[in-house]
Design a protein around this nucleic acid. Structure first.
Lengths: 206, 206
DNA sequence: CTTTTATGAATGAAGG
DNA sequence: CCTTCATTCATAAAAG
């Protein structure tokens, strides 16, 4: 919400156009800030990993226990409460992997495939094949519904004109180009496979 | 509602209204991707920080000065303005109509029905089928919850359960059956003072 | 301005 | 597969 407001401020009250396009708008400055923020994450992660390596190099005992805990959210995240939530919630990493698979179009019905995916995801947190099937099922349905919902009541082809538009946008989410999931939509390319994804996100097109 | 207004302003800016600002435009989907990506970094950083702490706890000599570089105050400031979700807010008129339809016993409004309703409501403000569906769903669930919350007063008290929920009794709210004490997890918390500037977007269990 | 509440939206799972 | 339900999250609105 602040986003829109910020934009409002930016305009300096120069309104006058009719509402129509429902998109997120950010200034170059905001974009830059975002890029930096993400870059910082990447840097921090790398530095910490580096630190860890240095330490483990000195003390083997430390590395033994914490060796490969980079990608195991269970150890770090689930160490406070064990008896909660009965519903599976994918960790961001699991989600990322799932979506990548989904994009590849490989995520279609295949129990074997599901097993494989489940296996891989197990390394990032507790998960079952049912979870995976459900996820793909829901994901697919959601996509379909999105494009179907894209059918506007008032069809306006205006892109960003200051004309009054009935709007075809859903407050839900993702409204545009759902049928064509292009990886280029990502501001940040994800190279995660099963490891941590460190990158400096310099590929931002400013 | 500020949505329209903001959009209006938004158009003014994008179309060269008053300020003639140069802005970036991104779809909700791109936003979503961005969120996820950042969340991944947040998780990783969290884990690494945790790891770091574990190590430093064991080895004093490991007290490197990476300690307080976890968060860059400059960069984090203003971050929270970039990501946020807008939300449809029914106008009083729309709400009135919706309530009336709801009371008519249309427990399960079909898709066609939704379309009709949406069409009608769109004349009183910006709205979409999704909004309508969501509204009915939430409305139904809420009603049920109220009933259920009022029912289990005491089994010994015979039956005094009435369907009087017609009125808006919200005082009860929150059944608070079992709260996990979920912190308001923002995408990026800028509320942190001196500590790490990230948090888990979600906790996974099971 | 900060905290709390109300409620729109997201989503994992169940039913058919 | 598609629809529906229950639960949770996030945010606009209200309260302090």
């Amino acid at each position: 919400m602040e986003w829109q407001k910020a934009t409002e401020e930016l305009n300096g009250g120069g309104g006058g156009g009719g509402g129509g396009m429902f998109v997120k708008v950010m200034t170059d400055e905001q974009m830059e800030v975002l890029r930096k923020q993400i870059a910082v994450y990447a840097i921090i992660c790398q530095q910490l990993v580096d630190l860890h390596k240095s330490l483990t190099a000195q003390n083997d005992l430390a590395g033994v226990r914490l060796g490969n805990m980079y990608c195991d959210p269970l150890i770090t995240s689930g160490m406070h409460k064990i008896t909660s939530r009965q519903r599976w919630t994918p960790t961001p990493m699991q989600l990322q992997i799932l979506e990548r698979i989904f994009e590849q179009g490989t995520g279609n019905p295949s129990r074997i495939r599901i097993q494989e995916i489940t296996s891989e995801l197990s390394q990032h947190g507790q998960i079952s094949q049912t979870n995976v099937s459900n996820w793909f099922q829901n994901r697919r349905a959601r996509s379909k519904r999105k494009q179907h919902a894209a059918t506007p009541i008032n069809d306006s082809e205006s892109d960003q004109v200051d004309k009054e538009i009935g709007s075809s946008n859903e407050t839900g989410t993702k409204t545009t180009t759902e049928e064509d999931l292009q990886p280029q939509n990502k501001l940040i390319s994800s190279t995660t496979d099963e490891n941590v994804c460190f990158e400096n996100s310099q590929d931002d097109s400013d």
